[in-house]
């Protein structure tokens, strides 16, 4: 039973990790907590639906098109909103991110309707017994894609000078500028990368939740995972996602499935109260 719970929890954990990574990337780079990020995840999935159901593209072509569109969306968000607001107060930028999410959500509600749409799984959703545990190929695909994305990001950040330049700009934008990194370009890349991550997460999670304008509430799970792992730590975001998936699954199985979401939010509150820097984040002390 425990083995089954853990196996099942990895799927949710992998998606939470991707969403958490998007939150943390944006926050590390630009100081903004993008409260509209969950709605961007939804929008990314809808881009695939529009391509497939309305333009008549094959699923893989619709996915490619959605990823390209999400690059443009990320660039537009940064250039049209976040760059002009770069010197505004934190509150103004948070409100802007919330407003952005609302615009995306209500746009989808107006033009795609309020009802849920089915979204294709990447592989079969019929479970297969393997060594006493039921494995769903579709869930394996979700975990596989998430792992591939996370490994790719790790290699970029750890092994390439461009990835190190992004991390450097996130840590110290003055220092980055002094070594020749064009910091505003880095921030643009961060918003584009986060936008693409949102679309990938949306494509992975939509079959599990069914696609509706309100699917963006999944963003709160990603936010919780980021807080749990440490909002200034990229590895922490991944660990937080996996941990949240496991804790949620355990709570749902051994406490109450009806209270699963409540338990997740209780974890968020507990982390903020007891260890606000999360499991892997660093506590920042600021003199005021």
């Amino acid at each position: 039973m425990l083995a089954q719970v853990l196996v099942s929890s990895i799927t949710a954990g992998a998606v939470y990790a991707l969403i958490a990574l998007g939150f943390v990337l944006i926050h590390k780079g630009t100081g903004v907590v993008h409260f509209g990020y969950g709605d961007q995840v939804t929008f990314g999935a809808y881009l695939v639906l529009i391509g497939q159901a309305f333009i008549g593209l094959r699923f893989d072509v619709a996915v490619a098109g959605a990823l390209v569109a999400s690059v443009l969306l990320g660039a537009i968000i940064y250039l049209a909103f976040m760059w002009p607001l770069r010197n505004a107060s934190l509150l103004a930028r948070i409100i802007a991110s919330l407003a952005l999410g609302t615009v995306l959500r209500e746009f989808l509600r107006s033009y795609m309707g309020p009802n849920a749409w089915p979204f294709p799984f990447l592989l079969s959703s019929t479970s297969v017994p393997v060594g006493g545990v039921l494995i769903v190929p579709a869930n394996l695909a979700i975990v596989g894609v998430a792992i591939a994305v996370l490994v790719a990001l790790y290699l970029i950040f750890d092994r390439t000078i461009y990835g190190k330049a992004i991390l450097a700009a996130c840590e110290n934008s003055t220092g980055a500028s002094l070594v020749g990194v064009h910091v505003s370009t880095v921030f643009l890349l961060i918003w584009i990368l986060a936008s693409v991550l949102a679309t990938v997460a949306g494509i992975l999670v939509a079959p599990l939740l069914t696609l509706s304008p309100d699917m963006g509430l999944i963003g709160i799970k990603g936010f919780t995972a980021a807080v749990l792992g440490g909002f200034n730590s990229l590895p922490g975001a991944v660990a937080g996602g996996i941990a949240l998936g496991i804790l949620e699954a355990l709570a749902g199985t051994y406490v109450s499935s009806a209270l699963k979401d409540m338990i997740s939010y209780a974890i968020l509150i507990a982390v903020i109260l007891v260890r606000p820097q999360g499991l892997f984040g660093e506590l920042t002390l600021k003199k005021v």
């Binding site: 000078i161 190190k164 330049a165 991390l167 450097a168 840590e171 110290n172 003055t174 220092g175 980055a176 002094l178 070594v179 990194v181």
Partner: peptide, 14 residues
């Protein structure tokens, strides 16, 4: 203005 979480090697490479 060093990148304090990064190694000496990474600071130099940057």
């Amino acid at each position: 203005e060093l990148f304090k979480s990064m190694s000496v090697a990474d600071n130099l490479l940057l």
